[in-house]
């Protein structure tokens, strides 16, 4: 469980994150959604202390993060970077085993864990174990990045636009494999994206951000059907039909027709 209370971060005169508070429940998937520059990455990085907030506090599982050694904190938090951030001088196996190695796992256990994750993420281990990141496609690199974040069974996973740099088809395929990962069920996940579809697909709860401030937080349905103002309403406008259609059971005809009417009205 992550509790964030009144955190603010200013770069120069610009408030990147402005008095933000939220809670992520145990095993919950929360998605931060917002346009470029609204402070999503800054927010995420404050959770594992890549950035320290100017004010406010963050607790993880009842402990203040500033009370722990940052290295120890980070080893318990998986982090996936938007641009993969793989170590170019490490093989795929070494990349995935980064945190286990820091934790001093024995070799056999590490190799087994790497093999297991590679299988789960559709990276044939025989092929790629000893390859280097530059020998992999972007989608494959992103899978390695996810495997690396998961390797040491961290209870918390932070993901910064993990599928952002991929083409739509690859994105869908990586996302599908990701969603099917059994180990994610019990994890507390904070995911950042500007892709509305993605947010709706993955989120238990969505936090909509604008200019460093929270505009609205709630379940996807709440955001879609009960927007808390113009910004929230307009934010989903372009994709409202697809989103609503996705939300509504395929046999709930009255609701479908309502949604379609709404969509048509907007077209004119």
């Amino acid at each position: 469980m992550i509790v964030v209370k009144n955190i603010t971060k200013t770069f120069g005169t610009r408030k990147a994150v402005d008095n933000v508070s939220f809670t992520v429940g145990e095993g919950e998937n929360i998605v931060f959604l917002g346009t470029s520059g609204c402070g999503k990455t800054t927010l995420l990085k404050m959770i594992n202390r890549l950035i320290d907030p100017d004010s406010g506090e963050i607790w993880i599982n009842g402990h203040r993060i500033v009370d722990q050694r940052p290295e120890d904190l980070r080893k318990k938090i998986g982090y996936v970077f938007q641009n993969t951030g793989l170590f170019p001088h490490y093989t795929i196996e070494e990349n995935i085993a980064t945190v286990p190695r820091l934790l001093g796992w024995d070799k056999k256990k590490m190799a087994a864990r790497v093999g297991q994750l590679m299988e789960k993420l559709n990276l044939p281990p025989d092929h790629y174990r000893s390859a280097y990141p530059h020998e992999l496609s972007g989608g494959q690199q992103q899978r390695v990045g996810i495997a690396r974040a998961l390797a040491a069974y961290p209870p918390v996973l932070l993901m910064d636009e993990p599928f952002g740099a991929l083409d739509p088809i690859t994105r869908a395929s990586v996302r599908k494999d990701f969603k099917e990962l059994d180990e994610l069920r019990s994890k507390t996940i904070v995911l950042v994206t500007h892709d509305v579809q993605e947010a709706f697909e993955l989120a238990d709860r969505i936090v909509l951000l604008d200019k460093g401030k929270i505009v609205q937080q709630g379940t996807p349905d709440e955001l879609l059907f009960e927007p808390a103002g113009d910004y929230a309403r307009n934010f989903f406008e372009d994709q409202r039909f697809q989103l609503e259609a996705g939300r509504i059971g395929a046999t709930d005809y009255p609701a479908l027709i309502r949604a379609f009417d709404h969509f048509r009205k907007r077209q004119h």
Partner: peptide, 27 residues
Amino acid sequence: VDPGVKEAAVAMGMTPAQRLFRVDLVL
């Protein structure tokens, strides 16, 4: 050294010495 890679090393929980010897100096 690519700042993204450096940041990844921090995010993985490497200590400053580990970052230096395993990442920065090697790259």
